[in-house]
Design a protein around this nucleic acid. Structure first.
Length: 506
RNA sequence: GGGGACGUAGCUCAAUUUGGUUAGAGUACCGGACUGUCGAUCCGGUGGUUGUGGGUUCGAGUCCCAUCGUCCUCGCCA
């Protein structure tokens, strides 16, 4: 091997993902990590990987540019060694093309090989489809980052935030950074605290959101502000929740919901278009909170499929089935899910769903199967002939469908059937994972009852404007509607906001 | 904070109805063979205080207690 002492001789001319048949004949230099080595004795294949892809380096004594030292070097290569290769791009013959790889029609015949850095044996194999535990992958994050799924996640996020910024700047917003070390303000979650060196015994709080500062910006007259802001909440984790997260925070003065919606619809559809090439039709559908609860049992409905909750209270009242009539007498409700082709479920599977809804406070799950000959199942006797027909007509059921009933307080029926609806959609494969359905949930309740503190509390934040400025808030606080709204996609809450109070008396 | 599950080779997992000799496999790693592989193949080998500490027992990876760690779940999350 010639030792080329020219400074930067190993500097790359191409990435490991870009060479194509048209490049054949060129002398190129590639830098990358050894993803795989295949050793056939006097013939070696090395898969060289970087962020952009993988290119095969072929070391064969019969190739142009081959030097005998290359065999030793190739034989000594281990996974994740950092390598520089200069060589010729060569077209592969048809039978050797790897169709699974973008660079699969070419390979490199090296004339110069240099190991830039040796790697210790990696603690896990760097491969896209890895079954290594998250714990180990996080411990060696630098290796995990070399995997496509992780890299693609970071790249998607980068392109997405870029598109958000792009759209906001175009719409005359100003990006402002606000302080991280601040005074604690009463918000919903626990604050993270940082001890102060200057003021002994005192602490800074990390912001749960840039709440206070954007108020100052608005009062200061900066009427359109945004920030890609870090937020900190000292609460326990969930699968979709981290104590430290980033949100797009924005604020506008002198606006109403229509302005907010149209700005955000523009931003979001722009970002989806730019990053995924996905067109989201605007305006987004708007669903008042109450309607969302009634129809989907959730304030973050997944709109990719139907199977809505249907109120069968009127028929249930006549059924004589105590579970139903009892719930109605207590002021609750009876609702049904019509599961298309659900009659194929076994008793055991239905029992599984029963256990599932019990987690959400339901006492059980009544069910009926719709057959050609009418209804079957333990509850069928309460819906004889005409009543049964009325029921199937009401919910639009067809032969082969399954009806699942929730009967309890409204809150429990909605919660349990809402969760069950999502679970059934998974089981019956009703969701297209490539689809994105966005909507606004509007008219949230202004106050929630806090069992813990035995009082009504703002369900959003204390500055949320009421739907009706002049309402009597002391009377029936639970029925007051607010001008708070959520942006929901595929069953996930993407964001929330509200029109703020400007009247001092309110 | 409550409840549950798990912890065995570098990694992913086995090890029979509370227990029975030297704790296995795949992969990685090391050595050997091999000229067209792309999960290369074939042969051989190294590798373990079974998370840690205590207990029960003639005998513990297995049972009990404690502890540490990880995950799930409920609470919490304007």
């Amino acid at each position: 091997m010639t030792t080329d002492t020219t400074a930067g001789s190993w500097k790359r001319t191409h990435s490991c993902g870009e060479l194509r048949p048209e490049d054949a004949g060129q002398i190129v230099t590639l830098n990358g990590w050894v993803a795989k080595r295949r050793d056939h004795g006097n013939l070696f294949f090395v898969d060289l990987r970087d962020r952009y892809g993988i290119t095969q380096i072929t070391i064969d004594p019969e190739n142009d540019g081959f030097q005998s030292e290359m065999l030793d070097l190739a034989g000594s290569l281990g996974a994740e060694d950092v390598l520089s290769v200069r060589g010729k791009v060569v077209l592969r013959t048809a039978d050797l093309i790897n169709p699974n790889r973008a660079t699969g029609a070419i390979e490199i015949f090296p004339e110069h090989l240099e190991i830039l850095s040796r790697s210790a044996t990696p603690p896990f194999i760097v491969e896209d489809d890895s079954d290594t535990s998250d714990e180990i992958k996080l411990k060696y994050r630098h290796l995990d980052l070399r995997r496509r799924p992780i890299l693609e996640g970071l790249e998607l996020r980068s392109r997405f935030t870029h598109a958000l910024r792009d759209s906001l700047i175009q719409q005359d917003f100003t990006e402002v950074e606000t302080p991280i070390l601040t005074k604690a303000t009463p918000e919903g979650a626990r604050d993270y605290l940082v001890p102060s060196r200057v003021h002994h015994g005192k602490f800074y709080a990390l912001p749960q959101s840039p709440q206070v500062f954007k108020q100052i910006l608005m009062v200061g007259g900066l009427d359109k502000y945004f920030q890609v802001a870090r937020c900190f909440r000292d609460e326990d984790l969930r699968a979709d929740r981290q104590p430290e997260f980033t949100q797009l925070d924005m604020e506008m003065s002198f606006v109403d919901e229509e302005d907010v919606f149209s700005v955000l619809e523009r931003i979001v559809s722009h970002a989806f278009q730019k990053t995924l090439g996905y067109e989201i039709p605007t305006p987004f559908r708007r669903i008042p909170y109450e309607e969302a609860m009634n129809r989907y049992g959730s304030d973050k409905p997944d709109l990719r499929f139907g199977m809505e909750l249907q109120d069968v209270g009127a028929l249930a009242a006549e059924s004589g089935f105590k579970v139903f009539t009892g719930a109605l007498d207590q002021g609750g409700c009876v609702k049904a899910l019509c599961v298309s082709k659900g009659a194929s479920l076994s008793r055991k599977q239905i029992d599984g769903h029963t256990e599932f809804v019990k987690e959400y406070g339901a006492k059980g799950l009544a069910w009926l199967k719709v057959g050609e000959e009418g209804l079957t199942g333990p509850v069928a006797k309460f819906f004889p002939e005409a009543a049964g027909e009325q029921l199937t007509n009401l919910v639009g059921a067809q032969a082969g469908d399954l009806l699942l009933f929730g009967a309890d307080t409204q809150a429990i029926v909605h919660r349990s059937l809402g969760e069950l609806r999502n679970r059934l959609a998974q089981d019956f494969d009703l969701v297209d994972s490539k689809e994105f359905r966005l909507c606004w949930i509007t008219e949230f309740p202004l106050f929630d009852w806090s069992e813990e503190r035995q009082r009504w509390e703002p369900s959003h934040h204390p500055f949320t404007a009421p739907a009706d400025w002049d309402a009597d808030f002391e009377k029936e606080p639970g029925k007051q509607k607010s001008r708070a709204y959520d942006l929901v996609m595929n069953g996930w809450e993407l964001g929330s906001g509200s029109i703020r109070i400007h009247r001092q008396d309110v």
